[in-house]
Design a protein around this nucleic acid. Structure first.
Length: 449
DNA sequence: AGGCCCTTGAC
DNA sequence: TCAAGGGCC
């Protein structure tokens, strides 16, 4: 009887797992393992932690209770488990995530002669593996995207026949209780739920995704980000199932963006907090009591700009925000309120159920003009224009900002123009967009010399 | 080396 | 139309 250890990092799925297929080639039974380290138990946002814990409970059920959950650092707890189940035939999948390399080296050293089988990233296709001809990493999306498409993506791995799960006689710790979520509701966790969501999206919304994806009032995005983050579904599976046409092409491009940012951060882990464009770290930001009041207004969705407030209230109330609203609210924080993108990015990570380091930090950097694309610093989103363009009937604003529910149509985007003035309970604007836009441009000009 | 290109914008 | 400079081949 030979045993394999399936070390699930954030790839919390069984259906198309390459490690599982590999394990079945050389072992009779499999011990599924998840290591809860302090990062996952500590400062991670409550929605993400709750979703993770629910995924683990789902896996526990699907493996007939065999899933082992260990608490500690992988390099400390793995060797003991490996020794208990018999080290001669153990295979382990590894992670190619941004910080995976250091940890993998520590784990490999701790395991000694036991092979660590590298099967790629659990949640993206290419991090660390695509470079330019001179072996340097890409810094601009479009060339990356061309290379990514040219390279192609291998199909999902399929295990042969049913798997014999075993707990290997290894003790486990209980999956923690969900943290308090308040009014936030999460989608159903786990691989089956993720695949069901994919089929729903592919049948109903994929065809006109290219036009509909920018409409926060329509709710026709895939909602798969949280499943992708935890590897409940792998992009490989989606890509192999995607088909052709404008909708699928647009979706493929979004999946490539995940890979691009994962790749950027893999090559330059420091850019999780430092500006990609080094000179931009000299940008000046507002500080002091007034700046703090403006921060508070942004966080609580009381800036007086309806589209911004709707986005921020969706974030707080749903632990999710439509992608276009992420750009609009991020632009408002950095360019209208002159506060640091890093602070906004940390706030997003704390509240978003799908908050993922590469996409979040580099999405923010892109909006802030400090990121991988060198051009857009002079683009300042106009909140009124964005509202009128992408929420033309005002339905999204009314859904999230009850003070404005009685205002019909697109007029909801400029409540200060209403004949009766700003409705009771809704705040006046914290800043004047036209003025702050000029201030922002001046500050960028200073840095650029 | 030179020339083409660059995620989603605004006035 | 504007914007500007560097990535990329």
């Amino acid at each position: 009887m030979t045993t394999a250890v399936l070390w699930l990092r954030r790839d919390l799925r069984l259906g198309d797992h390459p490690a599982l297929a590999a394990a079945q080639d050389c072992a009779d039974e499999v011990v599924p393992l998840f290591v809860l380290d302090d990062v996952l138990l500590g400062p991670a946002g409550a929605p993400r932690r709750a979703f993770l814990f629910r995924c683990l409970r789902d896996l526990q059920e699907r493996t007939g209770g065999a899933l082992r959950v260990l608490h500690g650092r992988p390099q400390d707890v793995l060797p003991d488990l490996v020794r208990r189940v018999g080290a001669s035939n153990v295979h382990i999948s590894t992670d190619a995530g941004p910080y995976g390399r250091t940890r993998d080296a520590a784990v490999a050293a701790a395991l000694g002669e036991v092979p660590l089988l590298d099967l790629g990233s659990p949640y993206a296709v290419t991090p660390g593996s695509l470079t330019k001809a001179d072996a340097s990493p890409y810094r601009v999306f479009s060339p990356f995207f061309r290379a990514w498409q040219e390279r192609g993506v291998r199909g999902p791995a399929v295990a042969e026949g049913p798997v014999r799960w075993t707990d290997g006689g290894v003790p486990t710790v209980a999956v923690p209780d969900d943290p308090d979520l308040g009014p936030v509701e999460l989608p159903e966790a786990g691989e089956r739920a993720g695949l069901a969501r994919w089929r729903e999206f592919a049948d109903a919304d994929l065809a006109d995704y290219a036009e509909q994806r920018n409409r926060p009032d329509a709710d026709r995005t895939s909602q798969l980000s949280v499943y992708l983050k935890y590897g409940c579904v792998h992009p490989r599976t989606l890509l192999s199932d995607l088909g052709e046409g404008p909708g699928p092409a647009a979706y493929r491009r979004e999946l490539a963006f995940r890979d691009f940012y994962a790749d950027v951060l893999w090559h330059a882990p420091d850019t999780a907090r430092d500006e990609v464009q080094a000179p931009m770290s000299g940008l000046s930001y507002d500080t002091g009591p007034e700046a703090e009041r403006r921060w508070e207004a942004w966080v609580t969705g009381t800036t007086g700009y309806p589209i911004v407030d709707a986005g921020m209230r969706q974030l707080a109330g749903a632990a999710w925000m439509h992608n276009r609203m992420r750009m609009v609210t991020a632009s408002f924080l950095t360019k209208d309120l002159h506060l640091h993108w890093r602070r906004g990015a940390a706030h997003f990570l704390a509240l978003l159920r799908d908050g993922d380091l590469p996409s979040n930090q580099h999405g923010w950097q892109w909006v802030a003009g400090t990121g991988t694309d060198p051009s857009p610093y002079f683009r300042v989103f106009n909140p009124v224009r964005q509202g009128r363009e992408h929420d033309p009937d005002g339905a999204y604003v009314r859904r999230w900002v009850p003070e404005l529910r009685d205002v019909a149509g697109a007029a909801v985007h400029e409540p200060w123009l209403l004949p009766g003035g700003v409705p009771t309970g809704y705040p006046e604007r914290v800043v004047n967009h036209a003025d702050e836009r000029v201030v922002a441009l001046e500050r960028y000009a200073q840095v650029r010399g």
